[in-house]
Design a protein around this nucleic acid. Sequence first.
RNA 1: CGGGGCGUAGCACAGCCUGGUAGUGCGCACGGUUUGGGACCGUGAGGCCGCAAGUUCGAAUCUUGCCGCCCCGACCA
Length: 490
Amino acid sequence: MSKALPKRSENYSEWYNEIVKRADLAENSAVRGCMVIKPYGYAIWEKMQSALDDMFKATGHVNAYFPLFVPKSFLEKEEEHAEGFAKECAVVTHYRLKANPDGKGLVVDPNAKLEEELIIRPTSETVIWNTYKSWIQSWRDLPLLINQWCNIVRWEMRTRLFLRTTEFLWQEGHTAHVTEQEAVEETERMLGVYATFAEDWIALPVIRGLKSPNERFAGAVETYCIEALMQDGKALQAGTSHFLGQNFSKSFEVQFVNKENKLEHPWATSWGVSTRLMGALIMAHSDDNGLVLPPKLAPVQVVIVPIYKTPEDLAKISEKAMPIFEQLKAAGVSVKYDDDDKQRSGWKFAEYELKGVPIRLAMGMRDLENGTVEVARRDTLTKETVSLDDVIDHIHKLLEEMQAAIYARALKFREDNTFSVDTWDQFKDQIEKGGFILAHWDGTAETEEKIKNETKATIRCIPLDAVEEDGKCVYSGAPSSKRVVFARAY
RNA sequence: CGGGGCGUAGCACAGCCUGGUAGUGCGCACGGUUUGGGACCGUGAGGCCGCAAGUUCGAAUCUUGCCGCCCCGACCA
């Protein structure tokens, strides 16, 4: 077995692929473009789900489930939406197979052709708004605040584990409101939820912004996003929140009676984050030794490794280790005691580093004599010796400290790799080196397109907190009032 | 869909050019010695060499076709 991971500095994408596989997060499946999320990777996803779900509930949302299949006629109803997704839809045309009359195996039964094709959902606005039609009659039915956790299929040309797969897992919130302002507030509220989640849980600093019209969700009036910077200097869109206006309520003829007894179309939002967040988590923090997990998302936060020669020694160590294990567990810390004698301690150290376990405790006979335990932290790869009396308290503090330190490190990286650029030459030069580029843009799709064609850089977002300043578009020289974020992106 | 690469043991690969007994490392099983940063020795199990056809006395190796996967582009969360 090759022990070392590829180095980030030498081949970032190979490093990424290897870390996903070696840390047991996911693997490619027998189905092209589709991944198998392995138990360890899924455990992290479950932690993300659980935290997000709590935040959705706290903001008044409830969960529901809508069908996997979308009748083609639904998808067609909102024109821009249909156009945007048409190219990447999987289509169900038949409902039955039969024995191959020419020999072995099965063939599609031509007599079982569907009258209307079914699309595997690339997103659920259409089925959901078709449903909302019957759920919404009065202003008293609003706001309708619904979320669903489900899978999605978008037929991508090229896939990468977690970052872009044909099938992926996500949540999609779909809300309906009486007023435009309420819907805009909801869109912004959920963007805030995503940003808070990214920063507090993934320890990932994000820029909150608006997408340019080019990058807008198909069918949206406005798309908000959070953008993060990965260690290779490329940007990753980590979440989106859309203000849909009345586009879907009109297309699906959803109306409610307002307080004045007049018919109105409700205002809509939708918002989602996906298993792509796993990719963000990996690429933001991990190093050449493996995963680095922020404690809040680590399936195992503390691992205790006994170091012993004889079963008698192990028994003595266990006697001291088990109270630590029990106390941590009782305090809600996810802890594992690894006394498996199949592997030696050195192997375990490397393995837990690869898997990103935040804190490792090692206890040997020497520690027993001294009443101590060795505490190793994953993010800095540092070790210290701590008295058994203090260790529980120490771990609690350390977990919090590490969560903050990992965020701080990512924030510093982003700050060190964000550049204000004012000339086209500087722009072209900097984009090769990576990072976020803050530059003036004249606001036209033409300029955006030309910049993309010449440099592969896209406008990641127009930051919500952009300062107003007079400037000239870095490409066209036309006047501009604020800087937008450019980067090459995943 | 274009351009490149690869399909041989669970995994990573060699062998192919120049046709002739299917190999190495890791992993796995058993035994022993080890154990504070990925231990070592010994014994052993494990293969339709991607699929199909062709050439040949004989094909992992040569020819043709097909299938699949990976990487680089165009498309995208």
